[in-house]
């Protein structure tokens, strides 16, 4: 009986250890297998040629990722410009001014926003944002825009990264020791002065980390962006031009890529690029956030 119990315990430990190692390897396995798939195209063309050329003609064997990279950056930039002030203001409000009732109402709102699937955001975007841009906003600035544009993608993405941004910002603000803000308030500073001179300054690294995390979330968003961006492989010159972010490119071409070996490899190169950038961004910002947590919890 005793041996059976010990045996069970030991084998459970071994299995758990195995799972732990497997999960550690997962990240590596994903990276390596995407890289292996991307190798054929990387052998044929230099990394620089792939990244800096704007020519995308799969049938002639030309794969330039520049339009897609620019589109992704442009859309994500718009998204963070819209989302950051909104989330900073509401995060500060929830941490300092808000009554319990308001927080209790607001929390489920954030949960629901983060729970809504990308495809629903896409549907909503095509129903509201796209016509709004095509009929109301764009005619004031340019002659014609279909509405499927950088701005539409940026707006939809902004809403999609709001929940992540706000919840990390709240975590950052709440990890600040109460003594600092109390000290500032007791010296006669108003609440807003405390926010401006103490809270924001002290949590600056955290805010940067939260921003980087949200930007990398925006980089990888696929379906919603695919539905509102227009998907034309050119370098967008204005907010109202259509664009074609990298994830949308991968998602749109999965069916036809099998017929041409280089095409598949090129798309996998896109996925690898996305993966590596997002992993680096995530690693840096998570390390920063962990450090903040450790420093203040001591």
């Amino acid at each position: 009986m005793k041996y059976i119990r010990a045996f069970k315990d030991k084998s459970a430990r071994q299995i758990m250890l195995g799972i732990a190692f497997f999960s550690l390897l997962l990240l590596l396995v994903i990276g390596v297998s995407l890289l292996l798939k991307a190798l054929p195209i990387m052998k044929e063309k230099s990394l620089w040629a792939l990244l800096s050329s704007g020519n995308w003609k799969p049938f002639k064997g030309e794969f330039g990722f520049l339009p897609y990279i620019i589109s992704t950056l442009y859309v994500s930039l718009i998204a963070i410009i819209i989302a950051l002030p909104l989330s900073l203001l509401s995060g500060i409000y929830l941490c300092t001014y808000a009554s319990k009732t308001i927080s209790r109402i607001f929390e489920p709102v954030i949960d629901l926003l983060s729970g809504i699937p990308p495809v629903i955001y896409g549907v909503w975007g095509t129903l509201t944002i796209v016509p709004l841009i095509a009929n109301k906003i764009a005619p004031r600035y340019v002659e014609f825009s279909s509405g499927f544009s950088v701005l539409a993608g940026g707006l939809v993405l902004a809403i999609m990264i709001l929940p992540l941004l706000i919840s990390i910002l709240l975590e950052v603000f709440r990890s600040l020791p109460k003594e600092i803000t109390d000290a500032s308030l007791s010296l006669g500073a108003t609440k807003w002065q405390t926010v401006k001179k103490v809270m924001l300054r002290k949590s600056f690294p955290g805010i940067i980390a939260a921003t980087v995390l949200s930007v990398s979330r925006a980089f990888g968003e696929t379906i919603a962006v695919l539905m509102v961006c227009g998907n034309i492989p050119i370098i967008p010159h204005s907010l109202f031009d259509a664009c074609y972010p990298l994830p949308a490119l991968i998602a749109n071409n999965y069916g036809e890529m099998l017929s041409m070996p280089n095409y598949e490899s090129a798309l996998m190169f896109g996925a690898f690029l996305l993966f590596i950038i997002i992993v680096i961004f995530n690693a840096i910002s998570r390390l920063t956030l962990n450090q903040i947590e450790k420093r203040f919890s001591l």
């Binding site: 297998s33 996998m268 995530n282």
Partner: peptide
């Protein structure tokens, strides 16, 4: 392990899709 799952959490679904496909 916690750190690696923090990063995996940030990996976009299209990359999981591409990896699954590969």
């Amino acid at each position: 392990i916690r750190f690696s799952f923090d990063i995996l959490f940030g990996v976009p679904s299209i990359v999981y899709g591409a990896f699954g496909f590969a």
